[in-house]
Amino acid sequence: MLLWINGPFGGGKTQTAYEIRRRLPGSVVCDPEHAGFGLRRMLPPELRGNFQDLVSWRQGVVEVLDLALTRHDGVVIAPMTVTDSRYFAETVGRLRELGHDVRHFTLLAERETVVERLRERGLGHLLPHLAGRRSGRNAGPRRESWALQQLDHCLERLREEEFAEHLWTDQSTVPKTADRIAVLAGLTLRPNTEGRLRTRLRQARVGVAHIRFD
C-alpha cells in the first residue's frame, strides 16, 4: 500500500509521514522531493524552476515508487504536494494503473493556521511576502519564498474533489492526523505514548532535516 500525503507547504505532510513511519512497523518514507531537488541541482541556476514540470521527475517518481511497492513488504509513505491535475494523473494515477493500492490524502487547514505554523518553524521573516509587501531584496531561502507565494493557489486547488480524501487539521495534532489516516486506510498504528516535550523535540529534528536552501 502507498500512502500519498498531499497538502500545502506548512500543512504537516512530512511530519505526518514520519509519525506514521514511527508507529507503523515495516513502513518506509519515500520522499519524491529528493528526486526533484536532485534533478534541479543538475541544471544551471538560471534554468532551475519547478521540478514537477520535468517529465523525468514524474516518470522517475513512478518508477521508484513502483519498485518500492513491488519489492518492499511494508507500507510506503510519500509526502508530496501536487496541485496540477495532469501531474497528479501521471504520478498517483499512473501508480494506480499499475495495480498498486494507493491511498491519497490531502491535509488542509485555514490560511491563518498554515501561516502560524510557518511562523512557528522560524520562517516569520518571510511572512511579509504573504501580505504582498514589496522588498528590495528576496529575504530568506528562495525555496521557502516560492512556497509561500504559492500558498493561496495550493489551498484553492487542493480543496477540489479530485484531491480527496480531505483532512482538515486546524484543530488536530500530528499524531491525531496520523491516527485518522491509519483508520481510513485500514491500518493499525502503535499507540502514541510520547510526552509533549519529546514529541516537539522529535518533530523539530524532522523539520531541520528537511530544510532546503536551493
Rank of each mutant, 00 (worst) to 15 (best):
M80Y: 12
A182H: 02
F37S: 06
T91H: 03
L123R: 12
V76G: 09
F88W: 15
F51N: 01
L107T: 05
I5F: 03
E90S: 13
L2V: 05
E165F: 10
G207Y: 10
E63W: 14
V206E: 07
T177Q: 03
N6P: 05
A164Q: 13
H100F: 14
L187I: 09
H72R: 12
W168I: 00
Y18Q: 03
T177P: 00
M42G: 14
T83A: 14
P8H: 04
T188A: 12
Q59Y: 10
R159V: 01
V55N: 05
D214M: 09
R137S: 15
C30G: 11
K176I: 07
V183W: 04
A185G: 06
R119V: 09
Q150C: 11
T83D: 11
H166Q: 06
F51K: 06
L155G: 10
K176Q: 15
T188H: 09
P44F: 05
T14E: 02
I181P: 05
H210G: 07
M1I: 09
P175A: 03
W4T: 02
T173W: 03
Q52K: 13
P25F: 01
T193P: 02
G36E: 06
E63Y: 13
F37V: 10
R212C: 09
R134P: 04
L108H: 01
F51R: 07
T70V: 04
N50D: 15
P79A: 09
T91M: 10
L43N: 13
A204K: 13
A164K: 13
R133D: 12
L148F: 07
V174Y: 00
N50A: 15
G38V: 14
F88S: 09
F213M: 10
P45W: 10
D214K: 08
I5G: 04
W168F: 14
P32I: 11
A164V: 08
P175R: 02
C154P: 01
A35N: 10
V206F: 01
L47A: 15
G207K: 11
E19N: 02
P175I: 02
R133H: 14
R159C: 08
G49D: 14
R142F: 12
V76A: 08
R22P: 00
E161H: 12
G26E: 03
V64A: 15
L108M: 12
L189S: 03
H125F: 10
F51D: 06
R103S: 08
G26A: 01
A139K: 08
D84R: 07
V92Q: 07
R40W: 03
L201C: 09
E63L: 14
G49K: 11
A139H: 08
A147W: 02
E33N: 13
A178Q: 00
T173P: 02
Q171M: 13
G136Y: 10
E162H: 09
L130R: 07
E19G: 06
N50V: 12
A182W: 02
L127E: 02
N6I: 02
L54I: 02
H125K: 11
H100W: 08
G99Y: 04
L130S: 03
Q149P: 01
L148P: 01
T193D: 12
G122D: 03
F88R: 12
T14W: 00
L148R: 05
G136T: 08
G122F: 01
L3E: 04
L43V: 11
V92Y: 08
